[in-house]
């Protein structure tokens, strides 16, 4: 299951999409907007996506996980304005055994962060910042 949406994510959808009766485990990662980052108080994040390319990259990463570990993988990412406490990303992999499920889930979320064209704008107590990799760059007011 690959989903890039402005609507709230339902982590259970990601599980249902991958689990079969031959799977003995699933590992799920849910990334949630938190209230602090880089020493600042954060009120919300706004995710910007290059939608067609982001969807293609998410599909590609799921395909690579299937080739490498032979398992099904759900990747859900929300974009637009997301308040603190709500999920921004969900990854779920199902497997016969836990070891490869942990490995694959970790690899998928790490690869999503580095290879899917999505960026976050952070609304903080002292201003608004674009987060680009490890850098936080002041954003113009909007």
């Amino acid at each position: 299951m690959i989903l890039l949406t402005e609507e709230p994510l339902n982590p259970d959808d990601a599980v249902r999409a991958v689990m079969t009766h031959t799977d003995g485990a699933y590992v799920q990662f849910v990334g949630v907007v938190r209230s602090h980052a880089r020493g600042r108080t954060v009120t919300a994040l706004e995710y910007q996506a290059y939608v067609p390319m982001a969807e293609a990259q998410m599909r590609r990463i799921a395909e690579q996980a299937r080739e490498r570990w032979g398992l099904a993988c759900s990747i859900l990412h929300r974009f637009g304005y997301i308040p603190v406490g709500e999920a921004a990303v969900v990854v779920c992999v199902a497997s016969a055994h836990r070891a490869e499920a942990f490995d694959a889930c970790r690899w998928v979320i790490d690869t999503v962060k580095a290879e899917v064209p999505i960026w976050k704008k952070e609304f903080a107590n002292d201003g608004t910042y674009w987060i680009e990799g490890e850098e936080a760059l002041p954003a113009s007011a909007s």
Binding site: G31, M53, H77, E115, I118, K120
Partner: peptide, 10 residues
């Protein structure tokens, strides 16, 4: 042509 700064999804 899209110019993609270091990504920060997730």
């Amino acid at each position: 042509v899209a110019f993609l700064p270091p990504m920060s999804g997730g």
